[in-house]
Design a protein around this nucleic acid. Structure first.
Length: 151
DNA sequence: GCCAACGTTGGC
DNA sequence: GCCAACGTTGGC
């Protein structure tokens, strides 16, 4: 099993929204590197950190589980969607999504400052300057360390 | 709201 | 294929 980190702006969709909905399609990713993770590497049963970006503060807000792996992102061929992309079609999809379900919301968010202060996490893409990928792999050791920080 | 970093677009 | 211009991300 692999671990991942998914970024969302809580103003748009937060961990509380996921708790309310139970599960959701993680769609709208329009970056090829992130697309490749969604399409090729994220598997059913994988666990993901749900990260709140562009937030006060930003940080890891909870955990979700992948319940359906890589499938074509239908929002790409929905003209009314803000993520509409005419290059993608049902016959030749360009973008992919996964479905995730709510597992837990942390009592207190693990904010960026806390993450940065942990030497064990300094290899995380999330903490690297200029790293903007909205879907990132998380190493096993990092996953465990972050879980300890929630205790 | 600012702006650095990065990805994409399009003229040449 | 280069690269300037532009748009987006996301911390601060």
């Amino acid at each position: 099993m692999s671990h991942w980190l998914l970024k969302s702006e809580p103003d748009v969709y937060s961990i509380q929204d996921l708790k309310r909905d139970g599960s959701t399609e993680w769609e709208g990713v329009r970056n090829y590197q992130a697309r490749n993770f969604l399409r090729d590497q994220i598997k059913k049963g994988d666990l993901v950190f749900f990260y709140h970006s562009n937030s006060e503060p930003s940080g890891i807000a909870g955990i979700a589980k992948v319940v359906k792996e890589g499938f074509p992102d239908a929002s790409a061929w929905n003209k009314k969607s803000p993520h509409y992309d005419p290059r993608s079609s049902q016959e030749k999809p360009v973008w992919y999504a996964v479905q995730i379900k709510f597992i837990k919301a942390f009592k207190t968010l693990i904010d960026l400052q806390m993450l940065r202060s942990a030497a064990e996490l300094n290899q995380m893409g999330l903490l690297k300057r200029g790293q903007r990928l909205s879907v990132q792999p998380v190493r096993e050791s990092e996953w465990k360390h972050i879980l300890k920080m929630t205790a």
